[in-house]
């Protein structure tokens, strides 16, 4: 195990008897309830953080299941009415030989959401149980999850644009399916779950393990 000299000497606001504002980075005495600079509520460590992470995570995962079972998009043409789920839409592209688009759809709508669920679960568990992954990697993972979370809404926007645009009377028309609502809810709950995670806990565990705590 490498043990960086610098890391062991870092002093946290908690060590100093202070509480920091997560919004504006101002330090206050521990008893302070609200940041006098920006008005944000001050919490030394959010004890219920993990519970909220888990609750939103479960809601998000629960919504992700119907998002994949129900049709995302209904296409009506002169000859047929077609209802496609997320995976079904990708399979259709494979059927027509359009492998690259199929791969992009599968990656953006299946692989990334599932990876996000796993990453949040891993981060939450790693705070409770020791993990061999270093705090730096976990911090980077957390930032990636927070950054990517919003981008999953792209599926919803694509469905919105297509079903608004493709309204060609009897020739062809597209309508959003009920899965779009579940998918959007899943994305929103996953974002809330990631936001509920207090990344300071990643570093607290590290401090304890390195024995810098008295």
């Amino acid at each position: 195990m490498e043990r960086a000299e610098r890391t062991s000497k870092v002093i946290t606001a908690r060590d100093l008897g202070l509480v920091a504002c997560l919004r504006c980075a101002q330090a206050w005495p521990r008893e302070t309830e609200r940041c006098g600079r920006c008005g944000h509520r001050l919490i030394l460590r959010d004890e219920k953080s993990l519970q909220r992470v888990a609750a939103y995570w479960l809601l998000g995962f629960a919504c992700y299941i119907p998002a994949n079972l129900y049709p995302m998009l209904k296409t009506e043409t002169l000859l047929s009415v077609q209802e496609a789920t997320i995976v079904g839409g990708a399979i259709e592209f494979i059927y027509y030989g359009n492998y690259s688009i199929a791969l992009i759809i599968l990656f953006a709508s299946v692989v990334i959401p599932l990876a996000k669920f796993m990453a949040i679960a891993f981060l939450a568990v790693s705070v409770v149980r020791p993990s061999s992954t270093g705090p730096h990697q976990r911090q980077v993972l957390y930032e990636v999850v927070e950054y990517i979370g919003r981008w999953s809404m792209i599926d919803i926007f694509v469905v919105a644009i297509m079903s608004a645009l493709v309204q060609l009377n009897s020739l062809a028309s597209m309508h959003p399916g009920i899965a779009s609502l579940f998918f959007a809810l899943s994305v929103i709950f996953t974002m809330l779950s990631a936001q509920a995670f207090d990344s300071r806990m990643i570093w607290d565990v590290q401090d304890q393990r390195e024995g810098t705590k008295p």
């Binding site: 870092v10 002093i11 946290t12 100093l16 920091a20 504002c21 980075a25 206050w28 570093w203």
Partner: peptide, 13 residues
């Protein structure tokens, strides 16, 4: 403590 800045991500002062 205006002489300090605390990292909102990792609480280092």
């Amino acid at each position: 403590r205006t002489d300090l800045i605390v990292c909102p991500q990792c609480d280092a002062a």
